[in-house]
Design a protein around this nucleic acid. Sequence first.
DNA 1: GTTATATAGAGAAAAATTTATCGATATATT
DNA 2: AATATATCGATAAATTTTTCTCTATATAAC
Lengths: 239, 239
Amino acid sequence: MVDDLLVTRPIAEASLRRLPLYHRYLETLKAQGAKYVSCPEIGLALKADPTQVRKDLEAAGITGRPKVGYELDVLLAGITDFLGWNNTNEAFLVGAGHLGEALLGYPQFSRCGLNIVASFENDPAKIGTRLRGKEVLAIETLPELARRMHVHIGIITVPATAAQKIADLMVEGGIRAIWNFAPVQLVLPQDVILHNEDLYCSLASLSRKLADLLRREAQVKHLKEQTAVSAAYLEGGFF
Amino acid sequence: MVDDLLVTRPIAEASLRRLPLYHRYLETLKAQGAKYVSCPEIGLALKADPTQVRKDLEAAGITGRPKVGYELDVLLAGITDFLGWNNTNEAFLVGAGHLGEALLGYPQFSRCGLNIVASFENDPAKIGTRLRGKEVLAIETLPELARRMHVHIGIITVPATAAQKIADLMVEGGIRAIWNFAPVQLVLPQDVILHNEDLYCSLASLSRKLADLLRREAQVKHLKEQTAVSAAYLEGGFF
DNA sequence: GTTATATAGAGAAAAATTTATCGATATATT
DNA sequence: AATATATCGATAAATTTTTCTCTATATAAC
């Protein structure tokens, strides 16, 4: 009973990560003038199991109608709502390098409830300038500003060696969640959320998939050659 | 029997993604002069279950010794080996914008078996220049070059609207795995690996964790206030 | 109106993943 | 030398996640 109030509706991390994909696909459907959509249709487009799609939507508290599917507008609104994209979270970004600028340039973050309000730098040459329309401020000013402005999210796009220092400043400023793009394991208080975006881990996954694919193909090729050799023997009348 | 040859040792995606984290931590240990390491130690440092660490290492085919743990050098070599970081994969990167430049600047990709050999662009102003020491080539030249150089990996860092066209060119060039940073669902032949790096999905996960945290805290605060009120009533002698 | 059909909804089954347990073993200590 | 202890290795249990199956329902076709 009380638990319902204490936490948001529980959902598997994997489901949560699929919902934005559905949302994106549904928007393209809407742009094409569609009014209704079914789970099999979504599954087909996104190469996902239809039942899984249905379970994900169920987890997000969205219902449809048998034989009809889901009303597109209701579904889009439901996902938006469930993901909290109506409420904006303000964020500070630290590290006005290329990655930082790329993130500031991401067009749709604001529509996903993320508003990067300023960026911070160490480099005096950059401080005081503007990046993608956002002020570049001195890193020392972060803690106080974060407190004053009640900014809850910090994004770290500095080199690995500097990341822990930045994280400490963020914690000092009362930041509650850190989106870390630096390849280091940050040490944080228990009540601060750490979300690592680690491209090396991602690369490991990609590399292995490719290695599997290439190995499989090499094996198939090898088997084919063997078969060809056997066939040649047969043709030659060895048996 | 034959299956052993057909595919690499099977491993859970989640395990695979943890191995680079272990590797990174182990390198810092090695730098500190350590010779041996145990699963509980790794687990403690990386906030992972020790049994899970052991299972991951087992999946990678690495063995240790009871009571002692793992020899650091053997363990590092084992992970490197398992992840295929000894063999280099060459890659083409398309989209010489900020994200592309950030990726080209990632210091350690080469140590993880990824060698980005060139980048490609649409913008004539950029073509012919160099980015992080790598040539910026015209996008039309990609298919032939990919074939000639046997490049197997394509990295897409162009805007969403251009991504599918780029993917098609990559497929035309015989590229086997695409690391896609654009927020679109690419349509590819079945035998081409697609690895999406979708920050919006990642953001959804972060946002929800934060929302949960803040809601929980608000609830706790509310309960405390209620308790305080009750206490006041009690003090006032209402009962 | 009746029948056929596609799809949500609900629950069960299966698969995968994580966590716990216990015995075996190598080292350190007494 | 005997004992204690930490950790691997293997197995089992628990949990989570995915997939399957069946039923009910809304629409369309006849």
